[in-house]
């Protein structure tokens, strides 16, 4: 069984998935965040692959991506990082990144290397199911988990397609927009998530705009878990030192863990 299916079948509570931009503020520290997050109760780790033009991201992740790129972070460096982090992080690690760096690496060789580097799955926000033919085949061949996004604007037909094409679980974008908007979720969000819980056969986690325990708890009424990203970038930026940022990341994960 894969690490992801073990995590999914063994869970007794909602999934808590923190997102950290790989290489922000540096490679070593971003993996320390992962480690402390798992100790504080995170179920999986999502690692952001920085891209020069992150068009689905809001200001926080734009900032962390830009900062990581300045330090020369690349896919290769990230894969090496994942492999060596395995000693201390044994939960599923999912990479989230835009398509062009993957394309530039070469789809086949990248997925092969991702697999051998113990990456568990991938989220590619600018690769909708319609464009994912070759990608999906190669993902299956390399036993990597494809996680596709579903949005409040997705039709029923698309929701079903996304459900089928996602390997283990689906990522639900809670609100139309970019990451980290901190939007207050409305009744429409509940209706949408409730609809997803009926239409999807696979579990789904909710992300984009989850900023505190209250919003996490609310989304978990219907969702099987939450992804939190931009809030961590804020916490890290507001911390005085790297050491303090690691402590603060752990504390924030614990606060969310308590309510979901």
């Amino acid at each position: 069984m894969s690490r992801i299916s073990t995590t999914l079948s063994g869970r007794s509570s909602k999934l808590l998935i923190p997102f950290f931009t790989a290489g922000f503020p540096d490679m070593k520290t971003s993996f320390q965040y992962a480690k402390v997050a798992v100790q504080a109760g995170a179920d999986m780790i999502e690692l952001g692959v920085p891209f020069s033009d992150p068009l689905a991201d809001g200001p926080q992740i734009q900032y962390s991506s830009y900062s990581a790129l300045q330090k020369g972070v690349s896919l290769k460096v990230i894969l090496e990082g994942v492999r060596s982090a395995r000693k201390s992080v044994d939960c599923p690690i999912i990479l989230m990144g835009y398509y062009n760096p993957i394309h530039a690496f070469g789809l086949r060789s990248f997925l092969k290397m991702a697999q051998s580097s113990t990456v568990d799955g991938l989220i590619v926000p600018d690769l909708p199911v319609d464009e994912s033919g070759d990608y999906s085949k190669e993902m299956i061949r390399n036993k990597l988990s494809s996680i596709f996004l579903v949005a409040p604007t997705s039709s029923k037909r698309r929701i079903k397609q996304i459900d089928t094409r996602s390997s283990d679980f689906v990522y639900a974008v809670t609100v139309a927009g970019v990451t980290g908007t901190g939007k207050v979720f409305s009744k429409a969000t509940d209706t949408y998530l409730e609809q997803l819980s009926r239409l999807l056969h696979k579990p789904f986690v909710a992300g984009f705009g989850v900023s505190d325990p209250v919003s996490a708890k609310r989304l978990c009424r219907y969702a099987d878990g939450v992804v939190i990203g931009s809030a961590f970038v804020s916490i890290i930026r507001e911390s005085r030192t790297k050491r303090q940022s690691i402590v603060n990341v752990g504390r924030f994960v614990s606060r969310i863990r308590k309510v979901i």
């Binding site: 689905a56 909708p128 319609d130 596709f148 604007t153 997705s154 698309r158 974008v173």
Partner: peptide
């Protein structure tokens, strides 16, 4: 029909935009 000019083109956008 898939919005391709030969191999080029297509729709590499976030899911939210697809319906539009």
């Amino acid at each position: 029909a898939k919005g391709r000019f030969g191999v080029y083109g297509g729709r590499y956008v976030p899911e939210t935009v697809m319906f539009a």
